[in-house]
Each structure stands twice: as structure tokens, then as C-alpha cells.
Design a protein around this nucleic acid. Structure first.
Length: 212
DNA sequence: GACCAGGCACATC
DNA sequence: GATGTGCATGGT
């Protein structure tokens, strides 16, 4: 299975090239983006990020001080804007209370402990926590999302009842524990999902993984 | 107009 | 522990 997963990676990388994730200027922007993109089209998230940048509010201090109603208005395009406002606020509180809003301090924390802390924040589930760990803090952890499950289910590599942790274990047991590999692999899966493996119109017969 | 998008918390069984 | 539901915009 190790060889198979590496072959799939090579096939995806050949087909799509490096994805250069996460698309953001700063680690803080990544963390905000992970919450905004929950069950949401990335194009809608970009509009919200752009709005925050235009108002020069995309910093821990500014967002922490910003009134919830203002924030909700600015991230409206990302959908679920009331919930996401609350989630951003709860994350910010954690970020200030536990790490003084210092990315470097946070990055020094033990991976297992930090993941537990993130999961305890209201609004941060496994995918958001792992996205923050991998893409904001460069920790070697594999991110699982809806595309990952859909694609690897369609290719018969995981069971449909498989939970998040089981899918994550499947990848992490069979791949080199490498931040760059995990970064690129997940990004390529999302790319494949967007291009070929949507819920409707699954163009599986011309998917680059066909026959793998 | 229906369907979907880089989830999560909460209620209920 | 599993399953169902609300949250919401904007593109196809």
C-alpha cells in the first residue's frame, strides 16, 4: 500500500504540478482561511479575505478588537457568516490566551498537545485543526477532507464508514512523515476533487488516477 | 431553480 | 457511537 499511495502521489503531481499551498501571505491568514473555508467554495472565501485585507484588519490585534457585527459583514461572502464570526472570535481568544497571539510560540508547542488544544476550541474540528497544524505551522500531519474520502472511496482504498482518524491513519501509516509531502498530497487531492471528482458529474473515466 | 462547496456543533436516538 | 439538521453565500 505504501508503494500504491506513492504512485498515486506521483501520478497527481505529474498531472497537476505543485500546488503551492496554502495560498496566503502569512501564517495568520492561513488560520483565518481554514475557518472561513469550512464547507465553502474557496472563491467565496477569497472575497472575504480580500475585504479584510482592504480594511487592513487581517491581523490578530485588529480582528480581536473588531466588533462581531462588523466582522460578520466583512466575511459575508464566505457564507455561514454569523457562525464563522463566532468561530473566528473563539479561535482568537484561544490564540491570545494561550500563545499571546505569537505564531512562533504556538509552533514550538508539542504537536499532540497543540492538536488537542485546537480541537477544544469551539468551531475547530479535526480538518480545521490539522489544516492549521500543517499549513500554518508546518507540522507533519495529514489533512483529510470530503474530497479525500470521496476519491479514495471511489478508488476502493477506504471504507465508506471510515471515520476521520481512520482515513488520516491510513495515509500517515503509509507515507513518509514529511511536512512537504503531506502539504502537496492534500492540495493535489483537492485539485483532483475540484477538477474531476465532484459529487455530480464525476468524470472518473478520465481522472488521472484511472487504472491506478 | 436545484445543486454544490477545502465542516462543525448540537440534538436525538 | 451513529445519524440528522442548521448554518448561507455565490458560481454552475
Amino acid at each position: 500500500m505504501k508503494r500504491k499511495l506513492n504512485r498515486i502521489f506521483d501520478r497527481l503531481h505529474s498531472a497537476f504540478g505543485s500546488q503551492h499551498w496554502w495560498p496566503a501571505d502569512t501564517a495568520f491568514e492561513v488560520m483565518v482561511g481554514t475557518i472561513l473555508t469550512q464547507n465553502t467554495n474557496w472563491a467565496n472565501v477569497e472575497k472575504a479575505i480580500t475585504a479584510l485585507k482592504e480594511k487592513k484588519l487581517l491581523s490578530p490585534d485588529k480582528l480581536y478588537q473588531l466588533k462581531a457585527e462588523k466582522l460578520a459583514g466583512l466575511i459575508r461572502s464566505a457564507g455561514y457568516y454569523n457562525i464563522k464570526t463566532a468561530r473566528l472570535k473563539s479561535f482568537l481568544k484561544f490564540f491570545f490566551d494561550s500563545y499571546g497571539s505569537k505564531i512562533k510560540l504556538m509552533a514550538k508547542q508539542d504537536l499532540v498537545l497543540l492538536r488537542r488544544q485546537l480541537l477544544a476550541v469551539n468551531g475547530i474540528g479535526p480538518e480545521t485543526a490539522d489544516s492549521i497544524l500543517l499549513y500554518a505551522l508546518n507540522k507533519p500531519i495529514f489533512v483529510v477532507d470530503a474530497y479525500t474520502k470521496r476519491i479514495f472511496l471511489r478508488h476502493g482504498l477506504i471504507k465508506k464508514e471510515a471515520q476521520y482518524s481512520q482515513v488520516q491513519d491510513f495515509f500517515m501509516r503509509n507515507l513518509k512523515q514529511d511536512t512537504k509531502l503531506f502539504n502537496e498530497y492534500h492540495a493535489l487531492i483537492v485539485k483532483l476533487g475540484k477538477e474531476y471528482c465532484r459529487k455530480q458529474n464525476p468524470k472518473c473515466e478520465i481522472c488521472p488516477l484511472h487504472g491506478q
